[in-house]
């Protein structure tokens, strides 16, 4: 393990920074909870166990919700929902955006013009608006939430990949590969894609944060993940009704989202700094 870290400049840099260590640790903790949440939960996340709206206690660490379900257990299971939506949505954006971006950048001409007009149209819907439009069409639910948020991520990836491809194509070794008779697919896979990996990694970390925030927002509105699946956003929404008497119902899930997104944004910043030493000081937006 040590040797692997030392041999890879990116890993060495990330592991070397304390902020990066902390954010990586927190992120991995959420991944573990997402993987084993249902096993770790002391109670069922769906069954009503006891009296509603009990304050946090030794038995129910984070209290119980409006119909007597254990909030701590529901939060652990929500981690899986949030992570699943986040990763699947990012994967959708990555795959479609990557293909569009590579096609536009590599082939240029009318392919580029057409694809970029499509991207322009998708970019005309700011933030969560595109996801809302897709939800109007598909209806709410876990799968549709992933699709809706994923589509929202496509234009960003397409633009990023197109730009990177254009800069890679100017290098001499690409012409050399072509001259040696490599076909398009081989040039793209063997020579272009590896050059994109680091910027895709940085962008995807920020996209994961964006997707998790979007899922929380949609579920808060009641247009995302639907009951009986628990979700942090939905828990905040039901906690809002009892905010004065039982503020913990909304505050714990809210903190869970915030800490995860914070960790992901910090991780994204650290990765970008590590990969791009010239931009060390720059803290540009995560959209």
């Amino acid at each position: 393990m040590r040797a692997v870290i030392r041999s890879n400049p990116l890993l060495r840099e990330v592991v070397g920074s304390r902020i990066a260590q902390l954010s990586l640790f927190v992120t991995l903790l959420y991944v573990v909870v997402a993987a084993f949440g249902p096993q770790l939960a002391p109670y069922s996340e769906i069954e009503m166990l006891t009296l509603p709206r009990q304050a946090p206690s030794a038995e129910h660490w984070f209290g119980t919700d409006e119909i007597g379900r254990d909030i701590y257990s529901r939060m652990l299971v929500s981690a899986r929902v949030a992570m699943t939506v986040g990763f699947v949505a990012v994967a959708i954006g990555l795959v479609f955006g990557f293909v569009m971006g590579v096609a536009a950048g590599y082939f240029g001409g009318w392919v580029d013009a057409t694809l970029m007009r499509v991207v322009d149209v998708l970019l005309a819907f700011p933030g969560i608006l595109l996801a809302l439009a897709v939800i109007t069409f598909l209806g709410p639910g876990l799968t549709n939430t992933m699709i809706a948020i994923g589509i929202g991520g496509i234009p960003g990836y397409a633009r990023l990949v197109r730009g990177e491809v254009l800069s890679v194509l100017e290098r001499d070794y690409i012409s050399a590969a072509r001259a040696l008779g490599a076909n398009h697919l081989r040039v793209i896979i063997k020579h272009v894609t590896p050059m994109l990996l680091s910027s895709l990694l940085v962008f995807s970390t920020a996209q994961l944060a964006r997707a998790i925030l979007a899922e929380a927002g949609l579920s808060y509105l009641g247009l995302g993940v639907q009951p009986p699946f628990p979700s942090w956003g939905g828990m905040i929404s039901s906690g809002q009704r009892f905010f004065l008497s039982a503020p913990y119902m909304a505050i714990y899930p809210g903190m869970a989202i915030m800490v995860l997104v914070l960790a992901l944004n910090m991780l994204g910043d650290s990765l970008r700094d590590a990969l791009n030493p010239q931009l060390r000081k720059a803290t540009t937006s995560s959209e």
Binding site: L213, G217, Y220, A250, I251, G254, V261, L262, N265
Partner: peptide, 26 residues
């Protein structure tokens, strides 16, 4: 200052709104 800015882009705004309601209204 950087941490404050980072929290600004990381906190779900509906949750932040609720916290402010709790403090300043309730």
């Amino acid at each position: 200052a950087r941490l404050v800015a980072l929290i600004g882009v990381s906190i779900p705004n509906f949750f932040f709104g609720l916290l402010m309601i709790l403090l300043f209204s309730l």
